[in-house]
């Protein structure tokens, strides 16, 4: 179980004041949870805190009871909103690079899971936008994190491609049982997918507005 406990944050550089306040929720193993909120409300900030890349002003993150606040590692893996692929590694090497002992899949299996078979020798810049997202997903699965955070992963793509990537993600989730926190500003993305949706408020500082349990999505 991953817990966010009473997270508050303000960037020390900014005069923007407090961004997040008193954010608490937890995610059970194997769950797929959505996190929504308007642009600029602090979703990416919360994602960075979750993955240990940013230490919150107060509050803590725990993974199975262990405090991981401000400590990046394989426990929580974040696929960034901007590209974070290593441009110098081809598809196959990119995935192999991330693979560790705890992952039960081989590189070839991961490649086929994200439908990139045949493209093992391509560099990221030789792939289409959608394929790059798939590669990032395969690489994240190779890490086998306790929690995988996807920050607007498919945000920049057109509707049709986005829908097909969400279908694939759902399939992969059902198959692998990866625990996922799916961040988006468009709640519509979560329909028929997540079991719970955490809605953030729009007024500053951002708090949790409500956590809704969605009836659908238990299609595992």
């Amino acid at each position: 179980m991953i817990r966010f406990r009473d997270i508050s944050h303000e960037y020390d550089s900014g005069k923007g004041g407090r961004i997040l306040e008193g954010i608490s929720f937890s995610i059970e193993q194997g769950e797929c949870v959505g996190l929504t909120g308007p642009s600029g409300c602090g979703k990416s900030t919360l994602a960075l805190i979750g993955a240990g890349h940013l230490a919150p002003s107060s509050g803590e993150v725990t993974v199975n009871g262990e405090r991981t606040t401000g400590r990046p590692g394989r426990h929580v893996f974040l696929i960034h909103q901007e590209s974070d692929l290593f441009p110098w590694l081809r598809v196959g090497r990119q995935i192999a690079f991330a693979l560790n002992g705890t992952c039960r899949y081989t590189v070839a299996e991961l490649v086929s899971l994200v439908k990139l078979t045949g493209f093992e020798g391509y560099y990221p810049n030789q792939l289409s936008g959608g394929m790059r997202k798939r590669l990032a997903l395969a690489r994240a699965l190779a890490i086998n994190p306790k929690l995988l955070i996807l920050d607007e992963s498919f945000g920049s793509l057109d509707q049709e491609l986005k829908a097909s990537l969400f279908r694939d993600l759902k399939e992969i989730w059902a198959l692998t049982g990866t625990t996922i926190l799916l961040i988006t500003h468009d709640a519509g993305d979560l329909e028929n997918f997540v079991q719970r949706e955490i809605r953030l408020t729009s007024q500053k500082p951002t708090r949790i507005q409500e956590i809704v349990t969605l009836p659908i999505g238990q299609t595992r």
Binding site: L48, A51, G52, H53, P72, G73, R74, V76, F77, L78, H80, E82, S83, D84, F86, P87, W88, L89, F97, A98, I143
Partner: peptide, 24 residues
Amino acid sequence: AIRRTARSMEITGLSYLWRISLPA
């Protein structure tokens, strides 16, 4: 984003210089 991803993969120290900084 690349630095952070490497940290998440627990690549640090000399290994970070060799496997991330150098090729990048």
